[in-house]
């Protein structure tokens, strides 16, 4: 991180909780760069997070108001804060397990209501901090602490889920594409209404080691290799999209057109919505 971004870090926070090779540091940088490039009034900036590694991205690192809440409940806390003080720019940063599993109900209902929030999901496909248990984004067949013989269950496609629930803007990028990721965060913040960014952020410690990635580089190569732009995905049959990381931006208009939202789901899949 360039030193000019140190002004956004809370004094006294010397080290992060992130493991070597964790993608969350790249995401932290992307969020700060987005805030900086948008020239947001930091006094009116509120970060809300839940529990888990990703919840530590804003708290305690970012020098702004931060509300570090309970497991899964960040979106509900953020809803109360935004409705009570609409002048605040409210950004939720949390993990896939937190936002989508325990907090899944809050996520879809906030999207439905169209509350003016930006929700950034640091998606590492596993429960990291609590010890590497499987979550609703863990790929089929992946080894985790609770799926020692491979995860038998299909994943949520977060783009489909949140767009279907009523979000005004949804994007997906991995930390291996930091510039589009940052631009998507900026767009999400500028979007009036509910905006969601699904950020693929590799977890070498809990996901990589169990799934036999030799080193951090190999895990990042996997993420990089899985990427497929939504425009390309729209031209491929569903069978070729299994397990792929379809990246891009989506709006409610895409639901109407019914194209380009197909993604991973090595399970039965189904037609693109």
């Amino acid at each position: 991180m360039t030193r000019s971004f140190e002004q956004y870090l809370r004094p006294g926070v010397k080290a992060t909780a992130f493991c070597p090779g964790c993608g969350h540091g790249i995401l932290l940088h992307g969020i700060l760069r987005a805030v900086d490039e948008l020239g947001l009034d930091r006094e009116k900036l509120l970060f809300v997070s839940g529990i888990g590694c990703a919840a530590w991205i804003p708290s305690p690192h970012i020098l702004a108001d931060t509300l570090h809440t309970l497991h899964g409940r960040a979106v509900a806390y953020a809803t109360g804060a935004k409705l009570a003080n609409p002048a605040l720019t409210v950004i939720v940063v949390s993990g896939d397990g937190d936002l989508v599993s325990i907090g899944g109900n809050h996520l879809v209902h906030a999207a439905r209501r169209g509350v003016d929030l930006t929700v950034i999901c640091a998606n590492n496909e596993i429960y990291g901090m609590t010890g590497g248990q499987a979550g609703p984004t863990t790929p089929v067949g992946a080894i985790s602490a609770t799926t020692p013989r491979g995860n038998p269950y299909p994943t949520f496609d977060l783009v489909k889920l949140v767009l279907g629930a009523g979000a005004a803007y949804v994007a997906r990028y991995p930390v291996t594409q930091p510039r589009p990721m940052t631009d998507a965060i900026k767009k999400a913040i500028r979007t009036p209404g509910f905006a969601f960014v699904d950020v693929a952020s590799p977890c070498p410690t809990q996901f990589g080691r169990r799934n036999r990635f030799e080193d951090v580089g190999a895990l990042y190569d996997r993420t990089h290799d899985l990427v497929m732009p939504r425009e390309e995905a729209a031209m491929r049959p569903p069978s070729e999209l299994a397990g792929r990381l379809v990246v891009g931006e989506w709006t409610p208009e895409d639901l109407r057109l019914g194209a380009g939202i197909a993604h991973d789901g090595p399970g039965p899949g189904g037609p693109p919505c």
Binding site: V48, L67, R73, T79, G80, A81, K82, L83, H109
Partner: peptide, 14 residues
């Protein structure tokens, strides 16, 4: 759960 969570979030805005 969401209700009491939203209450707490709102309270912190004053």
């Amino acid at each position: 759960i969401a209700s009491i969570s939203a209450v707490i979030g709102a309270s912190w805005t004053g």
